[in-house]
Simulated scan of single mutants.
Amino acid sequence: MSSGRTDNPAAERVAVITGGASGIGLGAARHLAAAGHPVALLDLDGDAVHRAAADLRDDGATVSAHEVDVVDRASIDTALDKVRGELGPVSVVVTSAGIEASAPFVDITAEDWERLLTVNLTGTFHSIQAAVPDMLEAAWGRIITISSMSAQSGAPDRAHYAASKGGVIALTKALAFELSPKGITVNTIPPSIIVTPMAENSVKEGTLDLGAVAGMTPVRRAGTPDDVGATCAFLCSDGAGFITGQTIGVNGGWYL
């Protein structure tokens, strides 16, 4: 996997992935790097993001790693300034950073609600807005938000999570209308169950029966970060230039 080919347009298009140290974010980073993009990993877990970057470099990728809290706009702005200095202007953003929680609606506190909305929705806003000026200057860009199937179908005990991800879908559509005339496509991927560290923690806590969910999925398996990453790589390609404002369900047929 190499990003050094000068005949590959992706080699000049820097991709920033939030939540890039693990799970869906890392899957997206792997596929974008394989397509030739220099990638910048942003994650709250500083140790994990540097380990992930080292693994990608071992595979021949051009990578920078940054410890970032997407709730803190100054943290994002500082990281992107470093990315520009190390790799160049930002052409691609994948917003995978997020948290989840489960609780009956009557037990959700105001603090719980605010935290989910702040990380999942406001963090997405900060991450995109900080990078868009580079894309506007280049008249080319790709933005992919990671939402959730629960925002489409609803989910018990997840009102705050579903609401935050529903906001991400709405933000995506609004930005598609505003930015697509300027050469920037904006799409969202709402996955169903994906085997990530977050899902594995839910299994350990007894709040998720992964086998049961996989068995009810039409393709009869849970998804992987690579499933989502492959879709991200396509949506970031020149071949996806006529796709914008779309909700691309990487869900194994769980939500039709």
Rank of each mutant, 00 (worst) to 15 (best):
R5Y: 11
T6L: 14
T6R: 13
P9I: 02
A10E: 02
A11C: 15
V14S: 07
V14I: 12
V14N: 06
T18S: 15
T18L: 09
G19I: 12
G19S: 12
G19L: 11
G20I: 15
A21M: 04
S22L: 03
G23N: 08
R30Q: 05
L32S: 03
A33G: 14
A33F: 11
A33Q: 09
A33M: 08
A35G: 13
P38F: 08
V39M: 08
V39C: 06
L41T: 09
G46Y: 04
D47V: 15
A48F: 03
V49K: 03
A52D: 07
D55W: 00
A61S: 06
V63F: 00
H66P: 13
E67H: 04
E67C: 08
D72Q: 02
R73Q: 10
I76K: 14
E86V: 14
G88C: 13
P89Q: 13
S91P: 05
A97C: 09
A97Y: 07
S102K: 10
S102F: 11
A110I: 00
E111Y: 01
R115A: 11
L116T: 10
N120W: 01
G123W: 01
T124E: 14
I128E: 02
Q129I: 06
A131G: 09
A131M: 07
R142D: 06
S148E: 04
Q152G: 04
Q152Y: 05
Q152S: 08
A155C: 07
A155V: 08
D157L: 12
R158Q: 15
A159E: 03
H160Y: 09
G166N: 13
G166E: 12
T172K: 14
T172N: 14
A174D: 04
L175S: 06
P181E: 11
G183P: 05
V186A: 03
V186G: 04
T188W: 01
I189Q: 03
I189T: 06
I193E: 11
I194M: 14
E200R: 13
V203D: 04
K204S: 00
E205L: 06
G206A: 02
T207I: 14
A212I: 04
A214K: 10
G215S: 15
R220L: 11
R221K: 03
A222F: 03
T224C: 01
D227Y: 10
V228G: 02
G229N: 06
C232S: 11
C232L: 12
A233V: 14
C236S: 15
S237T: 01
G239I: 05
A240Q: 09
G241Y: 09
T244I: 09
G245N: 05
Q246P: 11
Q246Y: 12
I248S: 04
G249R: 15
N251D: 11
W254D: 00
W254G: 00
